[in-house]
Design a protein around this nucleic acid. Structure first.
Lengths: 222, 222
DNA sequence: CGGCGCATCGATCGAAAGGTGTAACGGCGC
DNA sequence: GCGCCGTTACACCTTTCGATCGATGCGCCG
């Protein structure tokens, strides 16, 4: 709530946390820079506007923490960049900073090795605290994210197989069983079979409600 | 790329454009502030974190331009706030600044009286230029937005009626014709009738593809 | 005032989708 | 090796959906 100085004295040797900002929105990068550089103990060493650039700069500059967006323009390589950066043993911690909070996004990011997951509507103090936690190696989750995680763990049924997800995606695009069977070189019976399994797993009983459920849970995008 | 001074001399009488930033993300507000205040001729007089606050501050402070987000937390009152601010005769110009660029969003915003429509991934120069245009009363559209608009005008068929949109939304949530009829106190015949019209207008032939088409065109959300 | 679009309801009929049961095959773990 | 799971596939039956005819009342506009 109230502002208070950290326990450590400031004048020792300035152990600033070195940051890399990765986001495709210039405005967001400027905002993060503004918010974080006013806080003591942070130094933004570089900005990346694409996932590829983030991976490259993370390797070259070896920052302490990478603040990473999950949505980069059209392609969603944010999670992949996270994985590549986080896989380096002594490498930077990766803090995900995104607008959305779908279950699968969160899970994927954590599986990719992210140290924390923040939402962009987080207040500056929360942001700064999370970065400090990440720099120290501690996990940092936004409250909204944390509650989603436990809810997700409680009913981990909704794990569709790769094929099922593929079928459901085509359903979401509006294709009929007929069209899906042709596109995937299957019989309609198989498509129906997949759909029946999907319905059971999602607890629904129609293609449209399956799409609705999967979309709200972030299993399929768009 | 390179920094350069503006053509106008700075010392005349400082006719700064007075700005109100309305966005629910603190980081974005800070970013806008950082980007715009480094440019000469802009002054941020206030920030609003909700649509209601934006309307109130716009009335009290009478800024020249309001930079307005369309998505405020859960409810989408951004367009409503735009309408209320823009309806005042001598009032501020409203510049929409959002992440999404769906057709109906753009159309609604412009109908609500917005002077311009920008995307958050716009580079700082484009942003500053748009604000200057808006302050001068000129319309400012992001290139991506402009091209969408003309494409939209070309095939303006897809205008669903209010009732049709309502039905389609329920379809998108996964309800059956039966359930929709009960929820809207209609007969299934009427629901079917609405759907048939919807299919004709959207050029599709199934509920799922109607949802897909409407979603991609931004007619329905989520 | 006579259309026109919108919203409401009805009936019919064929096609599509969903429910249930059954089964084969390959991979993976205990 | 045996069982579980994912993927593929088929048959039969019921329900739902979509397409195509209708029809009525209402408000708006030229």
């Amino acid at each position: 709530m109230d502002e208070r100085t950290t326990g450590r004295a400031a004048g020792t040797e300035a152990p600033s946390v070195r940051l890399l900002l990765a986001d495709d929105h210039p405005v967001v990068r400027a905002g993060l820079r503004a918010v974080l550089e006013t806080e003591p103990g942070f130094r933004v060493v570089a900005e990346a506007s694409s996932a590829e650039e983030a991976v490259r700069l993370a390797g070259e500059l070896a920052p302490d923490v990478v603040l990473m967006d999950l949505q980069f323009g059209e392609r969603m390589l944010g999670s992949e960049a996270t994985e590549r950066i986080a896989s380096v043993p002594g490498g930077p911690r990766v803090l995900i900073l995104t607008t959305y909070d779908t279950d699968t996004d969160i899970l994927n990011a954590i599986e990719a090795g992210a140290t924390g997951y923040l939402l962009k509507d987080a207040p500056p103090e929360e942001l700064a605290a999370a970065v400090r936690s990440a720099a120290a190696g501690r996990t940092a989750l936004a409250p909204a994210v944390a509650s989603r995680l436990v809810g997700r763990m409680r009913q981990r049924e909704a794990a569709l197989s790769r094929r099922e997800t593929e079928v459901l995606s085509l359903v979401a695009e509006g294709l009929s069983n007929q069209q899906i069977s042709k596109q995937l070189f299957l019989s309609q019976a198989t498509v129906k079979s997949h759909l029946a399994h999907i319905y059971t797993k999602l607890g629904v009983d129609s293609r449209t409600s399956a799409v609705a459920a999967a979309t709200s849970q972030g299993i399929i995008r768009r």
